[in-house]
Amino acid sequence: MEFGQLSPDQFENMTFDLLHAAGLKNLVWRTPGADGGRDIEGTFTSIDFSKYYQHDRWYIECKRYSNSIDWPTVWNKIAYADSRGADFLLLVTNSNPSPSCESEISVWNSGKRSPTVRIWRGYELEGILRNYPQVAAKYGMLGKSTEAELSLQSLMFEAMKLAQTSYVSHEIGASNVAALEANAALAELISARYSQIRTYGRIVAPLSNALAPNYEWLTWNGPADGWDEVGIRALLSMARYLTGSQGVEATSDKERVMLLLNNARFEIAGAGEKAFGDVANLADVEVKEISKDSVTLSRRR
């Protein structure tokens, strides 16, 4: 894996996707960071043997370095994270701390001072990415490989489940148009990304000047250009299917789009939330907020 082939923005976006896949919740960008870049904040909930839930606030610094990282650099990031009340500071880098820096980090953590410092070093980051092949494939870390193609497998299974749902509904005489439309849009997205992986070795989400998706249950307010039309169709149809909404009203300002889910019967939660997040990842869109009645999506930088 050649992290040097990624731009600073791509490295930051890859880190964001990786943190989401690894289970960090409530992820948000914090701009600007200590060094002018974009930092990430999230929460991780754990439970101990007494059944006590602990919510830890994580502050993440992600940056490509050409040389090893020294202690003054880490110290500045510790001070910055501490000033924002972080419990943990995670440094995600393609490089490694210098030997003296490693010693200082060990001394800092052994003193049980806050925030606790964690590091995803370059050699560790490669191994972590291989546990989340969909993220690795998206950024070209797996190239034109069978492993990259198989990274789409989870969404292929989701499309298969939608196809089965549509068929069963048809067999019992109960039309399920929402499942059918979601299946068609998801299959289109998977097909497009599969073709891109085979051709370019990575996922490309081209911006378009297309009109708003032509669904009879969709009302679109604001500009529709600047969104990947294949990805936004999949997200819209999946949101409607997962919530059982009668219709969706979208309000866009190019950078964000808010979906109001009319008469939603269900929340996007559990397995549905994971599937929706996987679709958003392939569409290169961030899910900023989810409630029973609305979803807010944001374009990637």
Rank of each mutant, 00 (worst) to 15 (best):
E102R: 08
G85R: 12
E102T: 07
F44A: 12
S100M: 08
S151F: 10
I40W: 10
S106L: 14
R64G: 14
A250Y: 03
G42Q: 09
V248A: 01
L207K: 12
P97F: 01
L242Y: 11
S83M: 10
I128M: 03
T31G: 00
D284Q: 12
I47Y: 04
R300N: 15
L27C: 07
E12T: 13
N26G: 14
S68E: 03
A159T: 07
A159G: 11
W58K: 08
L6D: 05
G143W: 01
N94W: 07
I119W: 01
A182S: 10
P8T: 03
A187T: 12
R118E: 09
Q134N: 09
W120F: 15
K138A: 11
G4R: 02
Y80N: 11
N76V: 00
Q153W: 10
W120D: 11
V248R: 00
S106C: 10
Q54E: 07
A136L: 10
I78L: 11
E255L: 15
I172M: 07
T93Y: 04
P115D: 03
S106D: 02
V279F: 02
K144H: 03
S50G: 10
N96Y: 06
S83G: 14
A271L: 13
Y139S: 11
S66Y: 00
W71F: 07
T43Y: 04
G122V: 09
L211Q: 04
F276N: 06
F49C: 12
V74D: 00
L89Y: 00
L282H: 02
N214R: 03
T45Y: 07
S252P: 04
W220K: 12
V295A: 04
K51M: 13
G222V: 14
F49W: 09
V168R: 07
L129F: 04
E229D: 09
L150Q: 10
D253C: 10
I232Y: 01
V135Q: 07
M258R: 15
A179C: 13
L142Q: 05
N96F: 09
Q134W: 06
N214G: 08
S114M: 11
Q246Y: 10
G42D: 02
W58M: 14
W227V: 08
A280D: 02
I69C: 01
F276Q: 08
W29H: 03
W120R: 01
H55F: 01
A250M: 12
Y123A: 07
A269G: 06
P32F: 09
L27R: 02
R193E: 03
S100W: 00
D228S: 12
